[in-house]
């Protein structure tokens, strides 16, 4: 993008607004030709549909026990067999995905918003605002991700609300760093200088002019962040700090299965595979979007 300012009246300015708009249109026409993006959308879409339509895809109740049919192998009745309490594994997998995906997609919103706001303020105003925000970032990143998440959920008490709080406290820093970095570059561009010279308020410049141009990087990071959040939720579930039992959750399924690892390994491996496939789908979307933006703005 050009940063050279032309004197007025020298013909059409190869200005900022036209070029990205054209690139966006070009990118929009081409998105379906990105194999990574397409594969990601298909994988993620199928999983979300399967999780949402869980009651239609199985006739069992995820928490109904049937001790006469415990630890059964795969059969026509039980596609993936049953666990030690005779609960249908396929059913628990679908309902577990439903719970974990819902929590992960909600959980990613709070750090996204908080980090974007704090990052924009730090990048745009600089000075003491920047110092305070960045020292806060330094403080949070001093803690290992899992240590702080586990410790926070422990003190707040297990459950969904604690997961949201813990993920927000730990997760906002990456968004703040990304958005701050992008704003630092973008605020030197002509269109921002023009808006400032035109006397627009800081809030308007940030909200209407800067954010739309810098948000895409945060969005791409958000895709891999959802993967990290799902892993955190599953890990908390594994340690019994997640969604309380008997609600199906992939982490508690793996925990239940570990006692039968040598005899019924499918109880442990299947929920983990599901997590990997979800992660693969979302990572492909993130990578595809990143490629699209790179070629789109080139």
């Amino acid at each position: 993008m050009s940063t050279v300012s032309l004197p007025a009246g020298t013909g059409p300015v190869p200005g900022a607004p036209a070029a990205p708009a054209r690139a966006q249109r070009r990118a929009a026409r081409r998105w379906y030709r990105q194999p990574a993006l397409m594969a990601g959308i298909i994988i993620t879409g199928l999983i979300i549909i399967a999780a949402a339509a869980a009651p239609l895809l199985t006739s069992y109740n995820p928490i109904a026990q049937n001790l006469n049919a415990s630890l059964a192998g795969p059969s026509a009745h039980h596609l993936l067999g049953t666990d030690q309490l005779g609960r249908d594994t396929w059913t628990r997998l679908l309902y577990g995905l439903r719970v974990d995906l819902r929590i992960a997609f909600i959980a990613v919103l709070f750090p996204f918003v908080l980090g974007t706001i704090l990052g924009s303020l730090a990048g745009y105003f600089g000075g003491w605002v920047d110092v305070v925000v960045m020292r806060l970032v330094d403080t949070v990143v001093a803690f290992p991700f899992y240590v702080l998440v586990i410790a926070l959920v422990f003190v707040l008490g297990p459950g969904e609300r604690s997961i949201y709080i813990a993920i927000t406290v730990v997760g906002w820093v990456s968004y703040a760093r990304i958005v701050r970095g992008e704003i630092l570059v973008a605020k030197r561009q002509d269109y921002v200088l023009a808006a400032q010279a035109g006397g627009l308020s800081s809030a308007r410049i940030m909200g209407r002019h800067l954010l739309p141009n810098v948000i895409s990087q945060a969005f791409i990071y958000g895709m891999s962040d959802i993967v990290q959040d799902i892993l955190a939720i599953v890990t908390l579930g594994y340690f019994g700090l997640g969604v309380p039992p008997p609600t199906a959750d992939l982490g508690s399924m793996i925990n239940d299965g570990q006692n039968f690892l040598s005899t019924h390994w499918q109880l442990t491996t299947i929920p983990g595979l599901a997590v990997i496939v979800v992660g693969l789908g979302l990572s492909l979307i993130g990578d595809g979007l990143a490629d699209l933006l790179r070629t789109g703005s080139a």
Binding site: S224, V227, I230, L231, V234, T235, Y238, G251, I254, T268, T269, P271, G272, V275, I276, V277, V278, G279, L280, L282, S283, L284, D287
Partner: peptide
């Protein structure tokens, strides 16, 4: 990385 990033370490 596509496969590895989504893999729970305890799994």
């Amino acid at each position: 990385p596509l496969v590895g990033l989504g893999m729970p370490s305890f799994w």
